[in-house]
Design a protein around this nucleic acid. Structure first.
Length: 559
RNA sequence: UGGGGCGUUGUCUAAUGGUAGGACGACAGAUUCUGGAUCUGUUUGUGAGGGUUCGACUCCUUCCGCCCCAGCCA
């Protein structure tokens, strides 16, 4: 586990015996959307630190805004964290469990003259707040007596005022250069049914007030959050210091994760879901954990990725290729190999006996010495990949072309004798001959064939749907330069191919089971389609493709 | 232009006054029944200027650039 500036701070705290050597973090999502890979960074940081320091990490739902939150989201959050491989300490905490306590502390704030009930409307409050460069003005309600504030606040709770009519505000400093300190609202009146407390409350605490206290209630020592809360730290500390005298949690901020060719804001992801640009939160193109899971990403690969990107305070955009590296590395070691022809081209082996069937032994995983072998059937008619044949091949193309010889993996060498086309000029079939001496993939004369192709036997193959995914957006940084990110969606981020041919053993693939389709990529059986009894494979990531690179660069040279 | 942050190769990240290193990518080669994997090698960087110092990514200073903040969101 590599170090970072947060761990350095904790090491220092430990050295000074701060918090009596305790390390207690928390992951505090708001249940207003599904977790995405940016959350995974925060999860790995918080749970990872707890694990490595023999500490604790709480899961706390930061549910102080019922208008946006829902139980569906709390369920998905639990599932995603468990799937990622982390366990929270104790029960799941909810900020809503603290509503009564939070209310009592607010009364304490009033009693000590540190909070007041304000009648300013939202618009008025904005006007009083000042601007970035001008100080604000004090609310005319700022100097109400403690008794009046007290009784008004109770009436707020009792529902005697309409929504938005009054707020409870911290009395700090309207001239502060930090706008967060200009008498921030800490309670608002909002008649909204909460997913846990129902209609019990009509006033709800604000994040800036509820969060530090929730941390305190749970004995959190290090409250790790993202950079945009840096400006809120003085307020975080103000709330705690105004109410408490003991050792307090310390907030530390780190840069959130950005990855190119995708978006990472819950607002935007929600919009993609609600407006139907994608097939739900778990669409395999989404950067959500449920999407990545459905796509075939493993929890191990996501944890590796988080380890690779590190933790710092610098804003950054991580290359998608790093995520791809992490999943390839994991799946290369673990995924069983299968042969699947995605875009089939019929090959008839003219000199192969008409009704003969042979079974060849194939490695399930050459990277795993303990893996078993399987038998695959071979017959006179096979299918190969359309891309593995070119009638007029360029230099350095060592797949099949008229007159050339290639190896059908695990089977025989074949040579192309004739190309058959339909009346539109489209190639429909290849006529080949095989060398019986090359059985098993080698010949007595050790002749060199550069190309080795995957194939399926026409007699035995099963038809299946395969879905190929690409970046959801076709620009590196969607929404940049005032563009609407929705205009930058990649129109071919999903390509559905329905006539793919799989080898027989794949017919029983379990939902979520991952494979390497030889020479093509890693694929996993789609769990959503499986619920409807369909067998569909999602492409998780392609294999690295050196030939594609060579072809592309020579194409560039020509143009 | 108030306040808070951040600038190290194409990308991410180390080095906390003492050889600017790692990972990904890229490139080259070896090897290979996957143009995969594996192995080897190569390349590119401290935002700019001044200062302190034997020595500066690191300290001081001036500047430049980028991000965040004016929700009764989190």
């Amino acid at each position: 586990m590599s170090s970072n500036f947060i761990r350095d701070i904790i090491d220092e705290d430990l050295k000074n015996n701060k918090n009596s050597g305790r390390v207690h973090t928390r992951f505090p999502p708001e249940p207003n959307g599904y977790l995405h890979i940016g959350h995974a960074k925060a999860i790995c940081i918080n749970f990872g630190i707890a694990k490595d320091y023999n500490g604790k990490c709480n899961l706390r739902m930061d549910d102080t805004n019922p208008s946006k939150e829902d139980v569906e989201y709390v369920e998905s959050i639990k599932e995603d964290i468990k799937w990622l491989g982390f366990e929270w300490t104790g029960p799941i905490y909810f900020a809503s469990d603290y509503y009564e306590k939070l209310y009592e502390y607010a009364e304490k704030l009033i009693q000590t003259g540190k909070a007041f009930v304000c009648d300013l409307s939202a618009d008025e409050m904005r006007a009083y707040r000042g601007t970035l460069t001008e100080p604000g003005k004090e609310s005319p309600f700022r100097n109400r007596s403690i008794e009046e504030n007290f009784s008004l606040f109770r009436k707020m709770r009792a529902g005697e005022f309409p929504d938005g009519a009054k707020t409870l505000r911290a009395k700090i400093d309207m001239t502060s250069p930090n706008i967060n300190m200009r008498d921030p609202v800490i309670y608002r009146i909002m008649r909204s049914t909460h997913h846990r407390t129902g209609d019990q409350w009509c006033i709800y605490p604000m994040y800036d007030y509820a969060h530090p206290l929730s941390d305190y209630f749970e004995g959190i020592t290090h409250s790790l959050c993202s950079l945009e809360f840096e400006d809120h730290r003085p307020l975080y500390n103000w709330v705690l210091e105004a109410l408490l005298s003991e050792k307090l949690p310390r907030q530390i901020e780190f840069a959130r994760l950005n990855i190119n060719y995708t978006v990472m804001s819950k607002r935007k992801l929600l919009e993609l879901v609600e407006k139907g640009y994608v097939d739900g939160w778990d669409d395999p193109r989404m950067p959500t954990l449920s999407g990545l899971r459905r796509r075939g990403y493993t929890p191990e690969s996501i944890r590796t990725f988080q380890e690779l990107i590190g933790v710092s305070k610098a804003n950054s955009i991580v290359d998608f290729s790093l995520l791809e590296f992490a999943i390839r590395e994991d799946l290369n070691k673990r995924a069983e190999r299968r042969m699947t022809v995605i875009k089939p081209l019929k090959v008839v082996i003219e000199n192969y006996p008409d009704n003969q069937i042979e079974w060849f032994e194939a490695e399930n995983n050459p990277e795993d010495p303990n893996s078993e072998k399987r038998k695959i059937p071979f017959s006179k008619v096979v299918y190969i990949e359309r891309d593995d044949f070119m009638e007029n091949p360029p230099k350095k193309y060592f797949r099949l072309s008229p007159g050339s010889e290639v190896r059908l993996k695990y089977a025989y060498y074949i040579t192309c004798k004739e190309v058959i086309k339909d009346n539109k000029g489209e190639i429909t079939e290849l006529r080949c001959i095989y060398d019986p001496q090359s059985r098993g993939g080698g010949t007595p004369d050790n002749r060199v064939v550069r190309g080795t192709l995957h194939w399926v036997s026409a007699l035995h193959a099963k038809k299946t749907e395969v879905r190929l995914y690409d970046h959801l957006f076709n620009v590196s940084n969607p929404g940049e330069n005032d563009k609407d990110y929705k205009d930058e969606l990649n129109p071919i981020s999903l390509v559905v191919l329905k006539d793919c041919l799989i080898e027989p053993s794949l017919a029983e693939a379990k939902p979520g089971q991952f494979y390497q389709f030889l020479r093509q990529g890693y694929f996993c059986a789609d769990s959503k389609a499986a619920k409807e009894g369909l067998l569909v494979f999602n492409r998780t990531v392609t294999l690295k493709d050196t030939w594609a690179k060579i072809a592309a660069s020579s194409r560039n040279k020509q143009s």
